Simulated scan of single mutants.
Amino acid sequence: MELVSMRSIPGAGLIPGPDQVVAAASNVAHKMLYGGLADLRPMPRTLIDEGTLREVYHYRPSGTVQETGDPVLLVTPLAAPSICYDLRRGCSLVEHLVTEGRPTYLLEYGEVSFRDRALGMEHWIDEVVPTAIREVSQHAGGRPVHVIGWSLGGIFSLLAIADERSGKLPVGSLTVVGSPIDVSLVPLLAPFRPLLNFVNGKGPITRVYQMLGGAPKPLVKWAFQLSAFQKLVTKPLAVATHIDDREFLAQVEAVDRFTNNMIAYPGRTFGQLYHRFAKGNQLAHGTFELDDRTIDLAAIDVPVLAFGGSTDGIAPVPAVRAVVPLLTGSPEVRFEIVPGGHLGMLTGRAARRTTWLVMDEWITQWSGRDENTSVIGTNRKRRHSSAASRSLTK
């Protein structure tokens, strides 16, 4: 949520000029007459595959633009609405990709209910993500898929691609956006860590999520808002200060809609995330215990691009950058620091000039490669760019 970009010059804007007054009046009138300023129309899409908590969509080509190149699959994080990728017109990663002519696909999960409480992480890692990748590749004529996962969507993608049970997936590259790997580096959890370490077995948290069948929508929404508490508190002042800024107000509306559409976590999956990530911090060591096997991130043999948000409280830069030294099997690992918080780095107003352009460059770099020249080739020289990770925050 990018809500505190206040006027930075002391004294500036205290007495609004005529243009500001007209713009503010126009914005207020438009909001009263039409209910809002943001263009929240979703990009048109078609369902191409579905299963248990699995829906795969293909976004229709934009106007006269012809689809070319390898397909892109956007992996939605569990409990978040898929509008994270299609927030509003003008700040929609989907819109950007489609208008660039890229074949664009989305994986989402639909509503999670109490009857889904027995589903664990293996459902997404073994079945949902691998099936979606294969379906997209087939729909796109057998081309390799460039996977983009935000937050937990990035973690599920990492694990699915690393998992030997998935077999060789037709993946051209993987991009993870704001996916915390070492949660010990998340300051938001620091006050709760003594409690997490103290509670074992069926503690109060475990009993609550088992009784509820997971983490319900209101709790998920509250947790997301808590991560941006300062911005939430200053939101009324920020809105009042920017009442003449149509783009700013539209972004606030779009973020509010996103937050109001959070989805519940299935009980067993929430339990695994709680015990193995929040408490156990398993992925910090590069491996993850799932059922009767160990998934090792070093098994990932495709190029990986990772983004950290400069003001992300949920997945701070160090927590995301921790993935870089673990990807020893990848032919290239690139890490970028971009402006924004957890959602803003993906689809904030600054993302149009930073995150999306890097994604374009990355996908183009790793597109159109066959088995003999692809990143899968064992003779290709490995190059890690982690030590020279660039910052795009300026």
Score class of each variant (00 low, 15 high):
W124D: 09
R380C: 06
L174Y: 10
H30E: 15
P266W: 06
L3T: 11
R102G: 01
P316S: 07
M345P: 01
E253F: 01
M121W: 08
T68R: 13
R334M: 13
D245S: 07
I155A: 12
L326H: 01
N200L: 12
H275V: 11
R246G: 00
S227W: 00
M32R: 15
R293D: 03
P218A: 06
T347Y: 00
V147P: 05
G35T: 06
P266G: 09
R334W: 09
W222H: 05
H58I: 01
I125C: 06
P339E: 02
D70R: 11
E164K: 12
L106I: 07
S389N: 15
I9Q: 12
G377N: 13
A238T: 05
E50Q: 15
L93F: 13
N260G: 03
I376E: 12
R89P: 02
R88H: 08
S367N: 07
G51W: 04
T294H: 02
E135D: 14
S113V: 13
H285S: 14
G167H: 01
Q282M: 13
L158P: 04
V21K: 12
P204M: 09
R383F: 09
R115T: 12
G341P: 07
R257Y: 02
P144F: 04
V186Q: 01
I155P: 00
A160E: 08
H285L: 09
I376Y: 12
G63M: 06
A23L: 11
D49A: 15
E67D: 14
Y85R: 00
T378F: 11
E164H: 08
N200R: 15
R60S: 14
D126V: 01
N372Q: 13
V252A: 13
E100G: 10
K279T: 06
H58K: 13
N261C: 07
K231F: 02
S26H: 11
M43E: 14
G348I: 01
D292Q: 12
G69P: 08
K221I: 01
K394W: 13
A350L: 11
M1W: 08
L327I: 00
F307K: 04
E127P: 00
E108K: 14
A24L: 04
W150G: 04
K381R: 14
R293W: 04
A29T: 10
I300N: 10
W356M: 05
V176F: 02
W222Y: 07
S184L: 12
R134S: 08
L392A: 02
A250D: 08
V255L: 05
T378S: 15
R117N: 08
M1C: 10
H96R: 07
H139E: 14
R353Y: 10
P303D: 06
V177A: 02
L152D: 02
T175P: 05
A25V: 04
L14S: 09
A264G: 02
V252C: 13
E164R: 14
S26V: 01
E100W: 03
R134M: 03
S330F: 03
Y57K: 01
I181P: 03
L47K: 15
A254P: 07
M121S: 11
K31A: 15
L290H: 04
S137L: 08
T269K: 00
Q210P: 00
R115N: 08
R165W: 04
